[in-house]
């Protein structure tokens, strides 16, 4: 399956007066049509930044300083603003954590849906309205024919997020970037929204980049998952492998620190220390000061993504040439 989205060596920089901060450094991944790629990491790891770079909405003074983003083979990282704006509505849909930032409070939800479809699908007003009601029904809004003329503030939080999903999908984009789409919602609503997103994108064969800090959401929804740390991808692979048998020592620590729901443990596994600030990323592997397996090479040389069983991990432990090449059992043991 050819990749719909290709990201190659993406580098995002923030010039500040104390020097240039590198927020993303050498990020590469693909998403195939119909695939859900989960992106996880702690706050500041660069997961939202990656999403913003792809949809062309990096906050200034942030800028793409290197690498390529291709959608269906066409470069989209260097397009002028107007071209990118068209692509953003038509080819790439976006869902953010707070539905109020996406919805215009002054227009009815119907009008927003209709305008989006008219602009991007070139259909008439009557047809667009008919489809808008259809979309609201589709995302599970009761009495859609009446609610289509309501304003965003007349909906509850969960219902608003459903409207945002309808808005993101109504122009039938080929890629949806969903940044923490359920974080602001309560658990019982979260489950509804995830189920909805999963169903709709599967039906339409839409590729999804699902950014979240919630491993549970990823485990349920994603096909593959990328674990980010300090602006780099630490590990990427099939979701089952990364969740059940993580290879990178950071992923191992991250998975182990999640409190289990099905049992009580006396002491949770914890990773000592904290993720470095962008201004103080250590040389070599960014994780090396916290890593229980770090050796000299980790402190000197930055690892690329290496084959590590069923996943790929940016860790020298998986370089056959490393003096400290360790089979995975040692990490988990």
């Amino acid at each position: 399956m050819a990749a719909l989205l290709e990201v190659r060596n993406l580098r995002v920089e923030f010039p500040t007066r104390r020097g240039v901060l590198t927020a993303l450094d050498g990020v590469s991944f693909d998403i195939a049509a119909g695939e859900v790629l989960g992106v996880v990491g702690e706050s500041g790891a660069g997961k939202s930044m990656t999403g913003a770079a792809i949809i062309g909405l990096l906050e200034p003074p942030g800028r793409i300083a290197g690498g390529e983003i291709r959608l269906d083979g066409q470069r989209i990282d260097n397009l002028p603003y107007e071209r990118m704006r068209r692509i953003r509505g038509k080819e790439i849909g976006a869902i953010f954590q707070d539905p109020l930032t996406t919805l215009n409070p002054l227009y009815t939800v119907g009008r927003q849906l209709v305008e989006t479809m008219q602009v991007h699908l070139g259909i008439g007003a009557a047809e667009a309205r008919r489809r808008a009601i259809g979309w609201l029904e589709h995302v599970g809004i009761p009495a859609a024919a009446q609610r289509v003329d309501s304003y965003p503030h007349e909906f509850s939080g969960g219902m608003r997020q459903r409207v945002v999903i309808a808005l993101a999908l109504c122009a039938e984009p080929r890629l949806v970037v969903a940044d923490e789409p359920t974080t602001a919602l309560d658990v019982s609503i979260q489950a509804q929204i995830i189920a909805l997103l999963k169903r709709l994108t599967r039906e339409k064969g839409t590729a999804v980049m699902l950014i979240t800090h919630d491993m549970g959401v990823i485990a349920e929804t994603a096909d593959r998952v990328a674990v980010m740390y300090a602006g780099r991808i630490a590990e990427i692979g099939p979701v089952r492998e990364v969740v059940k048998h993580p290879r990178h020592p950071y992923s191992v620590g991250l998975m182990a620190s999640i409190p289990p729901l099905d049992r009580r443990v006396e002491r949770l596994a914890q990773i000592e220390g904290a993720m470095p600030r962008l201004s103080a990323i250590p040389p070599g592997c960014a994780f090396n000061p916290r890593c229980p397996h770090a050796f000299d090479r980790c402190r000197a040389e930055r690892p690329e993504l290496l084959e590590a069983g069923a996943t790929r991990a940016a860790c020298w432990l998986y370089d056959p040439a490393s003096e400290k090449h360790v089979p995975e059992s040692a990490i988990h043991g």
Binding site: V187, A191, M215
Partner: peptide
């Protein structure tokens, strides 16, 4: 219902 709603890490 709450317990049912929690995403399952055990896959």
């Amino acid at each position: 219902a709450l317990m049912e709603a929690i995403p399952d890490l055990e896959m």
